[in-house]
Structures are given as structure tokens and as C-alpha cells.
């Protein structure tokens, strides 16, 4: 009896790990290739065992523009998250604690703005950016990312705020706190974990955003997504260096993502799945 249960557990272990390794293999392969020489990297027979080298990382690091693009990614993802939070926190607070008859409709409308495919408005945004000098600027991309993430952030914060017991805020109201005090002295400290994971998700999404990065930025303000895309037309040996650059571009987000996996589901499903 016990041994059959154990045997089943081993069978599940084997199956699940095979699936996991298979799915993660491309990521593993990127990291591995980053430590190969270019010759090893393009070999027809893949090298699993080789003498690891750091030369690709040196090469990528020496091309100073890598850090230029990385800096753009950092500024845009952190900046857009900050801007979106600034707009979203008061809004979610008002909707969670002073709901009106229209609150539900407002939330659904916000969701529906995510339904609008970005490409549908590519032309006007491109022209507006061209005419206002926002094309290829960090500010422009940052603003777009903030708008893209705003509905998700508002929804996430809304569901987190709803979990703060209403009575606690009412007690504060009885104690003489106005709406802003309620927000800053109570709600923000109480929902810090929720705000943190919301920010994390927004940073991840902005970091990986590709459509607007590719269409609205060029040499000056391009983030890492666009920088990596410039490898798509290969000249010469480049797999290993591409892998090294990719590893550097995905590593921070992979770590953040793993750290926020629980809230990720909730955020991306707008609280429908917790």
C-alpha cells in the first residue's frame, strides 16, 4: 500500500520534472550559450559540456551602448510604474471605499480600454509623438507604458484595498481623519504588500513591453526589448553575444517575476482568480 503510493509519487515527480525541464530548456539554453565561444554556439552538434568563457559578457559590456539601453529600460519601467501608481492609488481608494452606483461600470470600462488593440491607435499616437517631439524619448514611452498598465494597476489596488476592513477606516473617520489622512496614515501602510506586488507586476510588464518600444523609439530612447530586436538581422557570428545580452536583459525580471508569482495571477486576471 505504502510502496504503491510512493511509486505513484515518483511517477508524478518524473513526469512533472520532464515537463518543467522541457519548458525551461530554451531559457537554460540562452544562459548556457552566453558562456560559450561563438564557434561552439553555432555548432551543428550542440555542446553541453564546454569550457565556460566570460568573453561574451565582456564584449557586451564593452559596447557601452548596452548600458545605455539598460538605463532606458530602468527609467521607463520604474518611471511608468511610479506615474501609474500616482494616478491609480487615489482612484482605487475612492472606488473601493466610496463606491457609487457607477463604480462597477467604471471598472469595467477601464478593463475595456485594455481591449483596444494598440495597433488600432498606432497611427495617431505615432503622429502625435512626431509632432510633439516625443518620438524616441524616454518620457513618451514612459507615458504610454503608464497608460497601458493603469487599468491593471487600478484593478489590482482596488482588490487589495477591498480587503482592508472597512471598519478600520471608519474608526479613523470617527477619529477625525479626512479622506487624505485615511489614505496616507492607514490605507497605504496597511496595503503595502499589495502595492509592492502591484508595482512589481507593472515593472515586469513595462520592462517586457515590445510593441510601442519598437515603433516609437530608436537609438536614443530604445529600451532593451528594442535593443535585442536589433540582433534580428544577423551579421557574422553572434549567438553567444546575443545570449549574453539576453541573459542580462531577462535575469532581473526573471527574479522579480518569481518573487511575485502569487500576485501575478491575481493582477493579470483582474482579481478574478486569487
Amino acid at each position: 500500500m505504502i510502496s504503491s503510493k510512493l511509486r505513484q509519487k515518483w511517477a508524478v515527480t518524473l513526469l512533472a520534472w520532464s515537463v518543467a525541464l522541457l519548458l525551461a530548456f530554451p531559457v537554460f539554453w540562452i544562459v548556457l550559450t552566453g558562456f560559450k565561444t561563438e564557434t561552439e554556439a553555432i555548432s551543428r552538434v550542440p555542446h553541453f559540456f564546454f569550457h565556460p568563457t566570460l568573453e561574451n559578457y565582456q564584449a557586451v559590456g564593452e559596447r557601452a551602448n548596452y548600458f545605455h539601453f539598460a538605463w532606458n529600460s530602468i527609467v521607463v519601467s520604474l518611471g511608468s510604474t511610479f506615474l501609474a501608481l500616482l494616478l491609480a492609488i487615489p482612484c482605487s481608494y475612492a472606488m473601493a471605499f466610496f463606491p457609487t452606483k457607477r463604480t462597477k461600470d467604471t471598472l469595467l470600462w477601464m478593463l475595456s480600454t485594455k481591449m483596444m488593440p494598440s495597433v488600432g491607435v498606432l497611427v495617431p499616437i505615432y503622429l502625435i509623438f512626431r509632432d510633439t517631439g516625443l518620438l524616441d524619448t524616454k518620457t513618451g514611452l514612459l507615458a504610454i507604458d503608464a497608460m497601458l498598465n493603469l487599468p491593471i494597476i487600478i484593478w489590482m489596488l482596488y482588490t487589495f484595498f477591498k480587503e482592508v476592513p472597512r471598519e478600520v477606516l471608519e474608526a479613523a473617520r470617527m477619529d477625525g481623519a479626512g479622506p487624505l489622512r485615511e489614505l496616507y496614515d492607514l490605507l497605504l501602510p496597511l496595503s503595502m504588500p499589495g502595492i509592492a506586488s502591484t508595482s512589481l507586476l507593472a515593472i515586469i510588464l513595462a520592462w517586457n513591453e515590445a510593441f510601442w518600444s519598437l515603433t516609437l523609439t530608436a537609438a536614443k530612447a530604445a529600451p532593451l526589448t528594442a535593443f535585442i530586436a536589433s540582433f534580428s538581422s544577423p551579421e557574422g557570428l553572434f549567438y553567444a553575444k546575443l545570449s549574453a545580452a539576453s541573459t542580462m536583459a531577462i535575469a532581473p525580471i526573471l527574479l522579480l517575476g518569481w518573487a511575485s508569482q502569487k500576485q501575478l495571477v491575481r493582477g493579470l486576471t483582474f482579481g478574478a482568480v486569487k
Binding site: 476592513p165 471598519e167 478600520v168 471608519e170 474608526a171 479613523a172 470617527m174 477619529d175 477625525g176 481623519a177 489622512r181 496614515d185 492607514l186 501602510p189 496597511l190
Partner: peptide
Amino acid sequence: IVFQSYALYPHMNVADNMSFSLKL
């Protein structure tokens, strides 16, 4: 008002909970 759930401010200690209204 005293609520059934107590509605204490979880991030403040007992003294701060009691003096919050006075501070405001």
C-alpha cells in the same frame, strides 16, 4: 464607536491607536 471587529489600526501600537484621534 467600538466595532465588533475592534477595527484597531494594525500598524500602530496600543498607545498610538488610542492617541490617533487626539493627534488629528
